[in-house]
Design a protein around this nucleic acid. Structure first.
Lengths: 341, 341
DNA sequence: AAAATTCTGATTTACGTACATCAGAAATCG
DNA sequence: CGATTTCTGATGTACGTAAATCAGAATTTT
């Protein structure tokens, strides 16, 4: 049988009330007594029954998810996963609020974060735009002892408690190796298509990609990055233009969203041009493109996992509990047409 | 506020005791009354507070993990993950017992399963050897309303509640495409290295691999499968022999354990022979081989995820709770040297 | 040393559910 | 119709913890 507060009281020779004061860091306990109790806790290996504690407290976890607006498939999927999480709210004792903020809008994000100060909140999860102002706002929340988790895109040098997302440098490196190996020993040009270089995840992917390309596939030369702003129309024309201007392009790495436009551009030149393509984010469009051979590999992060992980981490952090680090690592999924879920 | 048993009682116009009888399917309730209560439960959308219920019941989940003995890295890792789970036992209210059974030994596995009949057990997880006798033993447990989960390797046509493992056909197909693409348009022979064709996961991997190879990479021809029995020494000599007998082998797919032997054989011919290699299971050996270029890709299933998922599913099944299907899907991890965890 | 202050103990209620007991009501049987 | 049998209600205890109250002890201050 697992030890309870009663066992602590007995072991330390104090009353239940005193044990409770020590456990919940309430005042009114002399130092010597406090130490006696803490020693007893260690001795008998007491572990608080979180379920019982939450029951007694009537605990709910008010959580806030700050996600960017915008209609690209990935963010849409992310919002939908957060929404799904709200359906489990009563079971998980969460109370989730979704705040939408225009994408890449630093002041708006800062305002949303600052609006949470002083509120009774058990945790904040945000898709971070990597700016010093955002970092400062996050640090303010952290200093108020509010658990903060970055989602999908991380924040440089911030004190956030956790990052629920993939290692984007590794993702870029992986994309490079896949493209490099799939292209065999061929020689030619590669085009990189990004959403915006203002977000850290895109910058990091490019960084990893360039590093491996330069070091291991010198025969493949990179063209300047095309910034599609995650907009299908713009992306389509950028890609079409690049392909027609340079007939030696043999591969494409699409590291952001807006793949619909990319796919349209590819289909337009399809039978004639043979291109090896690696893209990010599994959506209905990239899935279909993978299946029909327009895209060769898709790198993905599972938004559902990210959201659930963020919730677990926020709850655990709010309770001062440890997390299973291994379980919270978000993996980079690599999909070929053969292992689609 | 979430509705409670009191709310049901009020809504149905009955007493708490009657609600309790209905909820816990105890006798002593007339049909009409029972239906009235059930209707009220549906009306107000009552969901049982599992934490409170478990507290009241003093519930613990006695779980049994049946895992094969043997010293290959993967099974070693699996046992270690189960052991790790026992460390969280008091928090998770589990009481995990590990039963070791010789690998591929059908009668022993059946005996282990039958020994559990009639015992007070909240769930059984087993690494299945795919034999009709095993299926029958599993079905006996299921008919006793004991939750059964297959782990890593599934059972054909059985009534087990859940399979916590990867899709092995997809794994084989993925391996084939990786090898095929990495080898570009080259022509030559491929060797497949398996542990034993008696386990379903190995058979399925081979099946998927062969299918994609035949359909999409006809220039790569498969040699007869080498059965290394997951034994490093035997594997090493088999591979060395094959490589020296056929100078046109340009790729290897190792779909089972015993990769230590494979790696040793590869290192012996390394600078001279250029081979593209895809292997299964990320261990310290395959990880090092991936890093130094001896192996090109490793397909992996995360044993920790499998064990934790199995536990969640067994607990949920024991409580008649739903599981988040998406969360319990075990994914095929593809590791290149760039995305190692 | 008396007063004021700070600790500590004892006790109670609560959270939502499970489970047992016993009395009384309703239904069924003879 | 009375006697059984079957249902239902009322009530209390328990699970492990939180939180509050109040009395009394120990300590510190005056």
């Amino acid at each position: 049988m697992r030890p309870t507060v009663h066992d602590i009281a007995a072991a330390a020779g104090v009353s239940l009330a005193t044990v409770d004061r020590v456990l919940n860091q309430r005042p009114g306990v002399r130092l010597v007594t406090r130490e006696k109790v803490e020693e007893a806790i260690r001795q008998i290996g007491y572990i608080r029954d979180v379920a019982a504690a939450n029951l007694a407290k009537g605990r709910v976890y008010p959580l806030v998810f700050i996600v960017p607006t915008g209609d690209n498939s990935f963010m849409h999927g992310l919002r939908s996963e957060v929404h799904h999480a709200t359906l489990r709210a009563s079971i998980e004792r969460t109370d989730i609020r979704i705040v939408e903020v225009p994408a890449f809008d630093v002041p708006a994000l800062v305002a949303a974060l600052d609006a949470l100060q002083g509120r009774d909140i058990a945790g904040v999860a945000l898709v971070a735009t990597d700016a010093p102002e955002v970092r400062a706002a996050v640090d303010r929340l952290v200093s108020e002892r509010i658990p903060v988790v970055t989602l999908v895109s991380d924040l440089t040098d911030s004190t956030r408690h956790h990052y629920a997302g993939i290692d984007n440098i590794a993702a870029g490196r992986t994309a490079a190796r896949l493209l490099g190996r799939f292209l065999g020993g061929r020689e030619g040009y590669l085009t990189v298509l990004a959403g915006s270089m203002l977000v850290r995840d895109h910058r990091e992917r490019l960084q990893g990609f360039s590093a491996v390309m330069a070091a291991e596939f010198p025969r493949l030369r990179l063209l300047p990055v095309l910034e599609g702003r995650d907009d299908p129309e713009r992306t389509k024309s950028l890609v079409s233009k690049a392909l027609s201007e340079n007939k030696d392009i043999i591969g494409i790495y699409s590291l952001g969203a807006g793949n619909r436009g990319l796919i349209a551009a590819l289909k337009a030149v399809r039978p004639a041009r043979e291109l090896t393509v690696v893209a990010h984010e599994l959506t209905q469009h990239t899935r279909a493109a993978l299946q029909d051979g327009t895209i060769d590999a898709v790198l993905n992060q599972d938004a559902g996992h990210e959201v659930r992980s963020a919730i677990r981490v926020m709850k655990a952090t709010a309770d001062g509990q440890a997390v299973i680090a291994d379980q919270e690592r978000i993996r980079l999924d690599i999909f070929l047409k053969d292992n689609l879920p």
